[in-house]
Simulated assay, not measured.
Amino acid sequence: MKSLENTFKKRLLAGETLVGLWNSLCSPIASEALADAGFDWLLFDSEHSPVEVAGLYPLLQAASGGSAEAIVRPAWNDKVLIKRVLDIGAQTILVPFVQNAAEARAAVAATRYPPEGIRGVAGSTRASRYGRAKDYFKVANREVCLLVQIETGEALEALGEIAAVDGVDGVFIGPSDLAASLGHLGNPGHDDVQNALRRAVEQLRETGKPAGILATNPEDAKRYRDWGYQFVAAGVDLGLLVKAADALATQMK
């Protein structure tokens, strides 16, 4: 039995544009249903949702039968959290709040086995297909896809240095936190924020690193895609549920 190939990483580095959906419902039923909705990827968020590592496990299992590739965002750039997320089978990690090249290098090290990094070694994990994938330790470093998240004006100033870190496969820009950092809390549509987002993707294009972003509606998602963002979340599952429920309730009154 062989290790699973990271199809998301392969497609991303081949230059494909990949559309995804943010998942914060913490429900295996929702994960299983959404994994076959037609998106290229689903992100399971453990930073801004109440799900812990043990709760991520069934989400990954439920989504594994669908066509969307799974991405996990750990709660922090923490080597222990990252190790545990990798051990339960996540191949693509989005590390939040990376401020500089040193923090990016720390994230890379946490996702790699020695001598390339510091990831701890465990045998019978879901990542290695419970020890049945005999090639796992040989290919794991290569198959992990590391995405780092830029969320502040300070991080934007270090964008080139962060993107240049070996082992960083893509850079994700967080519009909401960036808006707060730039003095426009709750208003990522402000011209200052939008201009910063456009400059960021242009700079990343020059470095050759794929750029990613989260949108909360199709219009923003399409605009970001047209600007050159290569992996774009077009919405959030909880937001879609609330919007549809509110619309139905309004229609029935």
Rank of each mutant, 00 (worst) to 15 (best):
Y57D: 15
D246K: 15
A109D: 14
R11S: 04
D36W: 03
L159V: 00
P50A: 02
E47H: 10
G65Y: 01
V80I: 14
R198F: 02
A109R: 13
L185C: 06
V242D: 15
S128A: 15
V148L: 01
Q230K: 09
V51K: 05
L248T: 09
G167N: 12
L240I: 13
Q194C: 02
N6P: 15
A127I: 12
K222E: 15
D237Q: 14
K222W: 05
P188K: 01
E143Q: 15
C145N: 04
E151T: 02
E5D: 10
R205Y: 08
T152L: 03
V165Q: 14
G20D: 13
Q99C: 04
Q194F: 06
G239E: 09
A249L: 14
I173T: 04
I173Q: 00
E161L: 04
A180R: 05
V51Q: 06
R205S: 15
A215G: 14
R84G: 08
A63M: 10
V95W: 13
S31R: 05
C145F: 07
N6L: 02
L185V: 10
H184G: 00
A63Q: 13
Q194D: 02
L25F: 07
I71P: 10
G208N: 07
L81Y: 09
R126M: 11
A234W: 08
A109N: 11
G89L: 10
D87L: 10
A54V: 08
K209M: 06
A101D: 12
P210K: 10
W41F: 06
V121G: 09
Y57W: 14
A180M: 10
T111F: 13
V80D: 12
S27D: 00
F97A: 13
Y130K: 10
E206I: 05
A62P: 10
R112Y: 11
A158V: 02
A101M: 08
R132M: 13
A102S: 14
V19W: 10
V236L: 10
S67N: 13
E151N: 01
L18N: 05
R73V: 03
S67F: 07
A70D: 00
R119E: 11
V53K: 12
G235A: 11
A200E: 04
A90S: 15
A33V: 12
P74Y: 00
G131W: 06
R73I: 07
L56W: 13
A62T: 04
Q194R: 13
S3R: 04
A158M: 02
E154Y: 00
D226P: 07
S49I: 03
L204V: 02
R11K: 09
G186C: 08
A107G: 14
E32C: 02
E202S: 15
G239I: 11
L241H: 08
G189M: 00
G212V: 12
G160Y: 01
K209R: 15
E143H: 07
A211G: 15
E143S: 05
F231M: 11
R119Y: 12
L178V: 00
R132E: 14
Q149D: 08
L59C: 02
A200W: 00
S176A: 15
Q149K: 06
G160R: 05
D192R: 01
G153Q: 02
S31Y: 05
